[in-house]
Amino acid sequence: MAMRLGFARRLLSTSSFASQLSAPAATAAATAAAGSDKPAPIPSDTLFVSGLNKRTTTEKLHESFSQFGQVVHAKVVTDRNSGYSKGFGFVKYATIEDAGKGIEGMDAKFLDGWVIFAEYARPRPPPGQAPTQDTFTRRSGY
């Protein structure tokens, strides 16, 4: 289910598809695709950024998000063998307010030619604790 929602969100955010819809219709379609079964995100000073180009660097990520507040740390997660981006990363802001501005400014925007998505990062479960059902469904793709 989460995979389908992500696909619908990406489809609606692409410029060619979104330009065919009027703004109110696009908003209504995005709201319907998101569904109401997803809990509201818990605000955090750290953002999870997905949809990154494999050539996006940590420096480029830091530079792009620093327009919206004081970035304490940015990290693009890379593949050990190739050194290229795995397609996601994290941005830590000084305050939660700056993180909110970062989401507003960069969510569904282009970075290095790709549409990226920014959302509040979910905290990791403590070591030894079983992952939640939501974590399982996101990792398995069901």
Score class of each variant (00 low, 15 high):
L5V: 11
R10A: 11
L11D: 11
L11I: 13
L12W: 10
A18M: 01
S19L: 10
Q20E: 01
Q20H: 01
Q20D: 04
Q20R: 05
L21S: 02
A25K: 12
T31L: 15
A34N: 12
G35L: 13
S36D: 14
S36L: 07
D37F: 09
K38F: 11
P39K: 05
A40Q: 00
P43D: 10
P43S: 14
S44N: 15
T46I: 13
L47N: 06
F48G: 07
F48Q: 06
V49H: 01
S50C: 01
G51R: 05
L52A: 06
N53T: 09
R55Y: 02
T56L: 02
T56C: 09
L61S: 00
H62P: 03
E63T: 10
F65I: 07
S66N: 08
S66Q: 09
S66Y: 00
S66I: 05
F68N: 06
F68S: 09
Q70K: 15
V71I: 14
A74C: 12
T78K: 09
D79K: 01
N81L: 14
G83C: 03
G83T: 09
S85E: 08
K86G: 00
G87L: 03
G87E: 04
G89L: 06
F90K: 10
K92I: 14
K92G: 01
K92V: 07
A94Q: 15
A99H: 06
E104H: 05
G105D: 03
K109L: 03
F110E: 02
F110T: 02
L111H: 02
W114A: 03
E119C: 14
E119R: 14
P123F: 08
P123A: 08
P127A: 13
G128S: 09
T135A: 13
G141M: 02
Y142Q: 15
